[in-house]
Each structure stands twice: as structure tokens, then as C-alpha cells.
Write a protein that binds this DNA or RNA. Structure first.
Length: 465
RNA sequence: GGCGUCGUGGCCAAGUGGUAAGGCAAGGGUCUGCAAAACCCUCAUUCAGGGGUUCGAAUCCCCUCGACGCCUCCA
């Protein structure tokens, strides 16, 4: 039985889907106006891992991730660049999709865009007005009437009175209540706009997700996800809109990932302390970013530093060692030892599932994998053949695959490999003559070039590092 | 000011009532010409601090201190 922490109830709950065997999952994507950073990557990775695990457990997952392609920031950026806003956002949509691909994130089953959902958004707003949950102001804006929604604030645990106490709220003249929020914004001169019953304009931020959910997944969904910075106001307002419109509970489980921290602060575009995904991938393998996410709880802040990245990289190395082949001169394992290894593979799988079932406890799941790593390496040291290692290694591949790790050995560039082979061969001759200084020089210099040599009783092995 | 999350060894981190997982780093050992990798051993009487509940608390309650997120766009 899978248990998931639900932000709405602040508790772990048993996971039961609306429809047996099918998970409807909606995850808030990004606003596309510049390069996505590793904080976005964290969120994408968290929900990719959740999706992969649910699929592993036999669910069919409908994974919807939206693109906000109509927004103030996009309009401003487009104006700066003298570019059409929708062309600009389209460019960044492709760019982000590419970043996700490079991070080995499975493509969502659907990626709706605001600009392509306009009729549904307008219809949604119309419906809210008809039911008295929204009103059109004289200036052409349409607002949601928070006072009409009895349980407004239930997701973030706020009360309207508390929020009014906040000093930073400005009372818009057109609003009935200071916390009323825009469903539709009247167009300013020269701005991109769409026709509506309330004049030319564009949707407010929150309504798009309500509308896309309805179009893509229906009135009720299983999982609604996103970063915990979206809990208020975005998801709060989404619940309000959708539940007032449909009269039904919206999402069963609200799942929020913690923020990625750089230098003790949240990484965000507005703070400017960002590391773009592309920059990260120039320095490190995609697995490193994923490992970083796996090493901590998805709900907790993730510390992004050179130290944590190094640790993630080393941990990956450790997983990879277990996948290396047996010694060619292996004498074979006793039947007893071989079956012990098979037993370890099975118990690791059970422990892995148990850990992941408990709110996707990836650190605990990794601990289970390291047990298998140790068992495999010990078996190899004790003379296991490839055939004997294979079942356990397949299990390790299977489980790390569920987490989305590729665990590929580093590749060199182009034709270098055969020259390294040659160099290693020459060095072996040098070693036979016990010319240690020369042979160590070759090893050290290759190390500097990113090639690690290991002298074993089966000869010298090398790999890119 | 309000709401929320949280504070576990040098670093990352699991554990939410039964006596501290795991990874990285570090030290010692086996192996090696020396390394590397692997394997073995060591590494928190203690869980921010102070009270309380309990036979028993890192885990529950209260207080204090501190960090982070949200209350404005934000994954």
C-alpha cells in the first residue's frame, strides 16, 4: 500500500485512485520566458520519480504538465527583445522540453498551453460568474469572490482575516475584497489579448490550471503537484475556482516538493541566484542532479553545493561499481553463495518497494540498493562469474531504472579510446620490465586527462573518470 | 505581524514512543611493485537548548533559540 503526504491534510494518507489502476496527475510546469534552472529540474525530477514508481507499481499514469505561455513576464521580455510573445514562449517551451530530455525526465503524457486553452478558460470564468463566485469589474477585469467560498484558505491553512493583516496587500479599487484575485485581466494598449465577453484581455495566472485540469483530466484528479512555493496563492486559488465551479473535491492528494537552496536561499529567477540546467549539464552528468534529489526527502529543502554534488557523484560511482563485470579468471561461486546473492537481490527489492511505498522515501530506498551493491561486489571478489552476477545486477539495473538513473560509464570523445588502449598496452610491457617510474608516470598523466587505470591480476583496466 | 516546514556525527541524510539506517569524507587493515577499485574494521551513550508526560522519547506536550518557505511573480 502506497502512502503519500497530503499537503491538504498535513498527513500521510493511503493512496487510492479515483479510477482503479489509473493515476491522474497534474504538475504545474514553468512560465516560459528564459532558461530553466536546477530548481525547476528538482521539481521535474521529483514528479518524474513519482511517476516512474507509480508505473512500476502497475498504474497507468496520465501525467499532465502545463506551460504558462501567456504572462506579464513573457510580455515584458518579448517587448525588450522586440519579439512576438507567443513566439518567444514557444521557443522556451522547446528549450525546456529539451532540458528535461537531457535530464532523462520522461515526457509528460500531455503538455497543454494557456494560449491553446483560451475558449475553455473563458467558459470556466463565465461559469463562475453565473454561479456568483466571480464578478466583472467596470474596468474589464474579472475577479474571484473569495468571501463566497466558505473554505477559502484550507490548503495553505490561512484565514481571510489573517491575510488582511498582512501589510503588503494593496486594495485594488475594482475589487470587492482585497483578497479577490483576477480571473481575467483587461488588456493594456498594445498588449497581446483575446476577445471575451468582458472585452479584450487575457487570463489570470490561476485560472489556466483549473481549466487545463478540467480539459485534460476531468473534474477530479488524483495528484496535484508542484513546488511548495505554489501552495499559496496559486494552488489555493486553483482549488477555490475548481471546487466552486464543479461542486466537487478537486485533487485527492496535494504533493509539494521542497525548494532547492543555493547558499542558504531558495534559487529563483527573481533572486537571480540561478544555475541554468544547461550550465549544470556542462559540468556534471544528468544522473548527478537526479542523485542529489534522491539523496534527500522530496519535501525537504535540497542543498545544492559543490560538496553535495561531489557526494552525489561519488555515490553514483559506488552504484556503478556493482555493475562492472566479473574477473575473466573467476573460478565461480559455490551454489550456496550464489543463492545467497539471489536472496539478497530479492530482499533488496522488497526493501526498496517498502521504502518507496512510504511517501517515496528515496534515501531509504537507496540504502537498500547499497546493500545489494555490497553483496554483488563481495560475490565478485569471491570469484563469481558473470553468469552468477547477472541476476543480481539485473535487479540493480531494474531498481535504479525505476529511479530514472542511467548509470552509464563515462564515454571518451571520439577515437581516443584506441590510442589509450595502445598506451596501456605499452605500459604493460614497461611494467613487465619493472620500470615503475615510467609506468607510474603514464598512469598519472592519464589520470590528469581523465582516464583512470587499475592494475588487476587480469591485466590493466581503464575507464574515463 | 500571520501561516507553514524544519533543526540528527565533519558534510548529505533515514528514523515520528522501545533504546541512532545509509552515502560522502576521515583513520586502520586485506590486496597491490606502488596505486586504484573492491572488501573488512573504526567513526553520534546521543538527536538545537530547557522543562514536562511515560516503565521507556530523537520521536508526544510546553517554552526558548535558530533556519527556511509563503503572505507580491516564483518549481
Amino acid at each position: 500500500m502506497i502512502r503519500i503526504y497530503n499537503t491538504l491534510t498535513r498527513k500521510k494518507e493511503e493512496f487510492q485512485t479515483l479510477e482503479p489502476g489509473v493515476v491522474k496527475m497534474y504538475v504545474c510546469g514553468v512560465t516560459v520566458y528564459n532558461d530553466a534552472h536546477v530548481g525547476h529540474a528538482m521539481s521535474a525530477l521529483v514528479f518524474d520519480i513519482i511517476r516512474r514508481y507509480l508505473e512500476y507499481r502497475g498504474y497507468k499514469v496520465k501525467h499532465v504538465m502545463n506551460y504558462t505561455d501567456v504572462d506579464d513576464k513573457i510580455i515584458n521580455r518579448a517587448r525588450q527583445l522586440g519579439e512576438d510573445p507567443l513566439k518567444l514562449s514557444q521557443r522556451y517551451i522547446e528549450d525546456y522540453a529539451n532540458d528535461l530530455r537531457n535530464l532523462n525526465v520522461l515526457p509528460p503524457t500531455s503538455t497543454p498551453q494557456v494560449s491553446k486553452t483560451m475558449p475553455h478558460i473563458i467558459q470556466f470564468i463565465q461559469g463562475l460568474i453565473e454561479k456568483g463566485y466571480a464578478y466583472a469589474a467596470p474596468n474589464g477585469d474579472v475577479y474571484f469572490r473569495v468571501t463566497k467560498d466558505d473554505d477559502y484558505g484550507k490548503l495553505s491553512g490561512r484565514r481571510l482575516e489573517d491575510m488582511q493583516a498582512g501589510a503588503r496587500i494593496e486594495i485594488g479599487e475594482a475589487k470587492e475584497h482585497p483578497m479577490d484575485f483576477a480571473l481575467w485581466k483587461a488588456a493594456k494598449p498594445g498588449e497581446i489579448s483575446w476577445d471575451s465577453p468582458w472585452g479584450k484581455g487575457r487570463p489570470g495566472w490561476h485560472i489556466e490550471c483549473s481549466a487545463m485540469n478540467l480539459v485534460e483530466l476531468g473534474e477530479q484528479i488524483d495528484i496535484h503537484g508542484g513546488g511548495n512555493d505554489l501552495i499559496f496563492p496559486h494552488h489555493e486559488n486553483e482549488i477555490a475556482q475548481t471546487e466552486c465551479y464543479t461542486g466537487k473535491p478537486f485533487a485527492r492528494y496535494w504533493v509539494h516538493n521542497g525548494m532547492l537552496q543555493l547558499g542558504g536561499e531558495k534559487m529563483s529567477k527573481s533572486l537571480g541566484n540561478i544555475v541554468p540546467i544547461k550550465e549544470f549539464l556542462k559540468q556534471r552528468d544528468a544522473d548527478v542532479m537526479r542523485m542529489l534529489v534522491l539523496m534527500g526527502s522530496y519535501r525537504a529543502p535540497l542543498i545544492f553545493s559543490d560538496e553535495t554534488q561531489d557526494a552525489a557523484e561519488k555515490s553514483l560511482e559506488r552504484l556503478k561499481t556493482a555493475l562492472r563485470p566479473a574477473s575473466p579468471s573467476a573460478s565461480g561461486l559455490s551454489a550456496e553463495a550464489a543463492s545467497a546473492l539471489a536472496a539478497q537481490a530479492e530482499s533488496t527489492k522488497q526493501a526498496f518497494i517498502e521504502a518507496m511505498d512510504d511517501d517515496f522515501n528515496t534515501p531509504l530506498a537507496l540504502a537498500a540498493l547499497y546493500e545489494l551493491v555490497k553483496a554483488i561486489n563481495t560475490a565478485r571478489d569471491n570469484g563469481a562469474t558473470d553468469a552468477q552476477l547477472q541476476p543480481a545486477q539485473s535487479m540493480l539495473r531494474e531498481l535504479t531504472g525505476v529511479l530514472g538513473l542511467r548509470l552509464q560509464e563515462k564515454q571518451g570523445s571520439g577515437d581516443a579510446d584506441k590510442f589509450i588502449d595502445l598506451l596501456v598496452e605499452v605500459r604493460s610491457e614497461v611494467r613487465k620490465q619493472k620500470l615503475w617510474a615510467l609506468s607510474d608516470l603514464i598512469r598519472d598523466r592519464l589520470k590528469e586527462l581523465g582516464v583512470t587505470l587499475e592494475d588487476t591480476k587480469d591485466g590493466t583496466k581503464w575507464r574515463w573518470s
